[in-house]
Nucleic acid binder design. Structure first.
Length: 780
RNA sequence: GCUGGAGUGGUGGAAUGGCAUACACGUCGGUCUCAAAAACCGAUGGGGUCACACCCGUGAGGGUUCAACUCCCUCCUCCAGCACCA
């Protein structure tokens, strides 16, 4: 017989809901704990990734509650976005209806897992009561010059028919549909995240409880690099080319300068030169080649001589000016000084085109380099040569000295360069937050007045799936009057990127029905920061960087008093089947719902926690789920075999387990926490448990398998819900062993084990060891 | 190329520098049963032995240490992120 999980789970879920047992109240007198899992996109069905993410969070939430914390554990939906729109096009429905149906169904599925959410705080980003605050935040940014519109070359996904932020382009493809991203010149809305680059970088140091790799990824993404901007004057022209370099120490080895084909100066300086035609045709040729092909490593470096010369400001040498496709307009100044001897790319280019080379750094104590004989650039450290007054210095030292020297002589400037670009937020799509701006022929760009928010997304829009924002075609929406001069005007018809919505939802959860602002500063002051955030690694840059940016913005507005929104971060691993990510196309999906039907939610929760540590990938295993189910039944049967008074040794085993489970949950080692409970259960099978010990076991199990634990807890007559039971304390006295097994090694090899009383003195121990028969034969 | 992480039984995975392989799956054996399933008990890294003893063993090779999966050095392989970033 197996336990009746279906009835049990339904029964307790209903009772918990009726008693509003997970409701979080603003109580400044109590220590708080804000536990948050990344809210889902309402696709309609939950998958194993959700189950894993939310089960991990639920264990911690329940554990912290039982420890006496006032826990905030909310849930909501990241409900704007393209899938709803695509579904609408396909099924000829409305995104709104489709989304709400999905939310309803997903809520139902999440509830079946027994997660301890305070559903009264639920928010959906597609509700105007939520997105009006997106608009409010946007206007605040507009006021401060942090939101601006500019024409530029932007990422364009041809299949989603919309622009994309840099962060949304993964290996040259759209993060959502994996189509190749193109470049387009468009006028778009940007957020000036670059104003916060220093703080976004520096404050990473505060995030001591974030995974290192996320810190590393963000550091890379922000991409600070320290160097010098050096000015190369053109010969016989009135122009100067600034180049950026991190290797000022190699300036005396710069034997030519290279511009990116798109460099604005190019067309101007080649005018009338014999090379003009060749240069123009080269530019045309590179334009056709996509960015992706250009940046692949094995492509030959192509280029062309401009016919112009410039002057190396360090040694006043006249050097040629080239154009090459390996120089990128979007990094640095779009121009480089080429040092073929000490940069591998320059080396290849110089070899290809027969350009001069000069060694300026010699390896210390090794065979000196000779430019003509080199087969690769020498990029390591060494001593300066051919470098005027800097000869003989170690290059790292020279790097600083040369930089200072150039600043003093006004031939260069010490500069810091950043990789981070401003965040492109306009999307040519319908299902998102309307950007609250009006265009007036008289007044230009006019903000929608705060009192007119929200700018509501019209319910009806034509979804043909053919080009352009659907909102453009909704006259009642697009046509309006200017708030300033009352003349006819039209609205912005682009909507905001959905990452805008999710950049502050954690603040909304603190006071989800607040009407005077995006959140109540007082309540947010109590609940924030999020003590523990849990979600997928795919947001390591995107969502996590944007949320950090928003938080700093709110701090500047005086709305919050902290710099960072998420104190501790856990990124959970993916759920695999047969070594591959579960996906429809591979047909290897295990549907959580079918597992719940067969074994119950508790078994699913237990398996997913036990099978692997949370940060690593988890291989789905049907036999493993069977094992989890068997374990629960094994626990279940203890109740029928309780004895009057358990052996003292069992009490010790229990206290050991209490310590182990507590420590392990604190450190997210759910798999070993469960293993220690299995050991305790094995001990109970060996010696028999009494009601008191069994009750404690149930408390320890309850964060993992809450329905199961609640049923046993109450059937033992323990009264009030196990969720209110209080986390057990272990008695340190019981953890002290009376005897210890001493392992005796001779020359590093285990030769004997002897059991001695706990406080045996060293001398006594030595004596015992030396007369141990097994040891004697090894110490001759 | 740079950055981060990983490599342990047949499998998922444990191990503050101190008994490598906890716990589970699988397999084998036993109890119960006419039988099977379930349940319960036990065995289970490799070599070796009737059985012990003993030897080998945490990707490879060195090193530190009385003692290394763990620390240091040099490699290899795999995963992830970024990448003609000047």
């Amino acid at each position: 017989m197996t336990y009746a999980f279906k009835e049990i789970e339904e029964k307790w879920r209903k009772i918990w809901e009726e008693k509003r047992i997970f409701q979080a109240r603003f109580r400044e007198d109590k220590p708080k704990y804000y536990l948050l899992e990344m809210f889902p996109y309402p696709s309609g069905k939950i998958h194993m990734g959700h189950v894993r993410n939310y089960t991990i969070g639920d264990v911690v939430a329940r554990y912290k509650t039982m420890q006496g914390y006032n826990v905030l554990h909310p849930m909501g939906f990241d409900a704007f976005g393209q899938p709803a729109e695509n579904a609408a096009i396909k099924n000829k429905t409305k995104p709104d209806g489709w989304t709400h149906k999905c939310i309803e169904w997903m809520e139902f599925e999440l509830k079946k897992m027994g997660f301890s959410y305070d559903w009264e705080r639920e928010v959906s980003t597609c509700d105007s009561e939520y997105y009006r605050w997106n608009q409010w935040i946007f206007l605040k940014m507009l006021e401060r010059g942090l939101a601006y519109k500019k024409a530029s070359n932007v990422n364009w996904c041809p299949s989603c028919e919309t622009t994309l932020a840099n962060e949304e382009v993964i290996e040259g493809a759209c993060w959502r549909c994996h189509q190749k991203v193109e470049q387009k010149d468009l006028e778009q809305w940007f957020l000036k995240i670059t104003d916060y680059k220093e703080r976004l970088l520096e404050d990473l140091a505060q995030l001591k409880e974030w995974p290192e790799r996320v810190i590393a990824m963000q550091t890379n993404w922000i991409g600070r690099s320290q160097g010098v901007e050096i000015y190369f004057r053109l010969k016989e022209k009135d122009a100067t080319i600034p180049v950026f370099t991190t290797r000022a120490d190699t300036i005396f080895g710069a034997t030519y300068v290279v511009l990116a084909p798109e460099h604005p100066l190019v067309k101007e300086i080649i005018k009338g030169l014999p090379q003009e035609k060749a240069v123009l045709s080269f530019i045309e040729k590179t334009e056709k080649v996509t960015k992706e092909i250009r940046s692949s490593a094995d492509v030959r470096k192509e280029g062309v001589f401009t016919g112009c010369y410039c002057v190396n400001p360090a040694n006043n040498e006249t050097i040629p000016l080239w154009i090459a496709d390996y120089v990128l307009m979007e990094y640095g100044t779009g121009a480089i000084m080429a040092v073929p001897t000490h940069d591998q790319r320059d080396f290849l280019f110089a070899k290809e085109h027969g350009l001069p080379m000069r060694v300026v750094i010699q390896p210390d104590g090794r065979q000196p380099l000779e430019a003509g004989a080199m087969t690769a650039a020498y990029e390591e450290d060494g001593l300066q040569v051919n470098s005027g007054q800097f000869n003989g210095l170690p290059n790292q030292e020279a790097k600083l000295k040369i930089a200072q020297w150039m600043e003093e002589g006004s031939i260069g400037r010490i500069r810091t360069h950043w990789r981070l670009r401003d965040w492109l937020i306009s999307r040519q799509r319908y299902w998102g937050t309307p950007i609250p701006v009006i265009y007036c022929t008289q007044c230009g760009i006019v903000a929608v007045p705060y009192e007119e928010l929200p700018v509501v997304l019209p319910e009806d829009a034509p979804f043909t799936g053919e080009g352009g924002s659907p909102l453009k075609k909704v006259k009642e929406f697009a046509e309006t009057t200017c708030p300033k001069c009352k003349a006819p005007a039209h609205r912005e018809t682009d909507t905001m990127a959905t990452f805008f919505d999710s950049s502050w939802y954690f603040l909304r959860f603190c006071s989800p029905r607040f009407e005077q602002g995006p959140f109540d500063a007082k309540e947010a002051g109590y609940w924030m920061a999020v003590d523990q955030y849990i979600g997928g690694i795919e947001h390591a840059i995107l969502h996590l960087l944007y949320s950090r940016f928003f938080t700093k913005f709110f701090k500047d507005l005086g709305m919050v008093g902290f710099d960072e929104p998420f104190t501790r971060l856990l990124t959970q691993g993916m759920v695999l089947k047969d070594g591959e990510v579960m996906s429809k196309s591979k047909g290897n999906i295990v549907d959580p719902d079918s597992i719940i039907k067969q074994y119950g939610a508790d078994t699913l929760r237990l398996f997913i926690l036990f099978a692997a540590p949370p940060e690593t990938e988890l291989e789905w295993d049907d036999r493993g789920i069977e094992g989890a189910f068997k374990f629960l039944n094994r626990v279940w049967r203890i109740r029928e075999n309780l004895i009057a008074k358990a052996d003292a040794s069992l009490s010790k085993a229990l206290h050991k387990a209490i310590k182990k489970v507590s420590d392990d949950i604190d450190n997210f080692k759910f798999n070993t926490a469960i293993a220690s409970l299995m050991e305790l259960v094995n001990a109970i099978y060996a010696s028999g448990a009494d009601k008191q010990i069994f009750s404690k076991l149930i408390i320890l199990l309850s964060p993992f398998v809450p329905h199961f634990a609640e049923e046993l807890w109450q059937s033992l007559g323990n009264g009030e819900s196990v969720t209110r039971a209080g986390w057990p304390q272990f008695d340190p006295a019981l953890l002290i062993e009376e005897t210890a097994v001493v392992v005796v090694q001779v020359n590093g090899k285990v030769r004997s084990k002897i059991e001695v009383p706990a406080h045996t003195s060293d001398d006594e121990l030595k004596r015992l060891v030396l007369c141990d028969a097994k040891i004697i034969q090894w110490i001759q």
